[in-house]
């Protein structure tokens, strides 16, 4: 549904986006991650046709955004960063305007407005003017605007920004559900959101894509991924460490905490984590070291995010 090729955007001497390419198909929810100023919003503005790219091509559905913007834009629903809306309009007036701009009128328009009022829990403020709404409600109003025409493509720039935890949960649910039948790109700084909602995630840093994969794949890049955390009922750190370290397939062991005694065993490159975990359990049983817990780490997205996008890390790589 969305094909982005070699997208580049330069503001004066500053390169905001530098050679970004990816595709999103129907039924996919793509998470857009990256530190502040990485170029997420700029990329989204180019995909939605708000700003022209310096270089590169954008295809939405079968339409080229640069050559045929009107039908391409008709396919897209867009929630811009900071969720702008017209403060002097009422919520339903604003949504009615959005519906009309999308070519809906009469009954179809009324239906569309009522549908999104309900979906975004805006019914009790529908006659209130936008400027008197709280930030979260304003955000939801703009979100409602983006789905008014039930678009095939949804581009959401930080859709859960400023929402309370309940609403965050609702909106995530909504995105996930809509993702079954639409192509969705959304950006966020909340990493759990990516795990909860996305089928794929892209990490972008200083204008370039530095990682692209399922949340699971990305987590596997974590240093911790595949390590085995062992928690003992009691025992002495160095002794336990030596015993775990001598188990077949264990590369090295680090002590996480002394009390309660918790160790982390990193398996050797070619050893499967599950096998090593079983071997450790067998050893503990034989050695009469009562275990309180034992599990294989999945890896953590925030760790991956940091290791990929941290400036000094990058600098180190470059000097190598």
């Amino acid at each position: 549904m969305i094909q982005v090729q070699n997208l580049r955007k330069q503001f004066g001497p500053k390169v905001a986006v530098n050679g970004v390419s990816f595709t999103v198909e129907k039924g996919e929810v793509l998470g857009f991650l990256g530190p502040n100023g990485a170029g997420k919003s700029t990329s989204m503005r180019m995909i939605t046709g708000f700003i022209p790219p310096t270089e590169g091509s954008i295809k939405v559905g079968t339409y080229d955004m640069l050559e045929n913007p009107i039908p391409a834009k008709q396919l897209i629903g867009y929630l811009p960063e900071n969720a702008p809306s017209y403060p002097d309009m009422t919520v339903s007036g604003f949504l009615g305007f959005a519906a009309e701009m999308r070519g809906l009128s009469g009954d179809a328009k009324k239906k569309a407005v009522n549908r999104v009022l309900e979906m975004c829990f805006l019914e009790n403020v529908q006659h209130q003017s936008v400027e008197t709404l709280s930030k979260g409600y304003r955000h939801r109003t703009c979100f409602a605007q983006s789905i008014i025409h039930d678009p095939e493509v949804l581009i959401l720039d930080e859709p859960t920004d400023g929402l309370d935890p309940n609403q965050k949960h609702e909106v995530r649910g909504l995105i996930k559900k809509m993702g079954e039948s639409k192509a969705i790109i959304f950006s966020t700084h909340i990493l759990e959101e990516v795990e909860a909602v996305c089928s794929r995630a892209i990490i972008i840093d200083r204008g370039t894509i530095v990682a692209n994969g399922t949340p699971r794949d990305l987590k596997m890049r974590s240093e911790q991924a595949g390590a085995i955390t062992v928690k003992f009922v009691d025992g002495e750190a160095s002794a336990a460490r030596g015993k775990v370290g001598s188990v077949q397939g264990v590369d090295r062991v680090s002590v996480i905490s002394e009390r309660p005694l918790t160790l982390r065993a990193f398996p050797k490159k070619n050893a499967g984590s599950d096998d090593v975990a079983r071997a450790i359990a067998d050893m503990a049983f034989k050695e009469h070291l009562p275990l309180q817990g034992l599990h294989v780490e999945e890896g953590r997205l925030d760790e991956v995010f940091r290791s990929i996008t941290l400036p000094d890390n990058k600098a180190k790589e470059e000097t190598k």
Binding site: G49, P71, K73, Q74, P80, P84, Y86, M101, C142
Partner: peptide, 14 residues
Amino acid sequence: RLGTIELLLTMPVT
């Protein structure tokens, strides 16, 4: 100032 220009010009209008 309001940023609504982004909304307006990403709707299907020239």
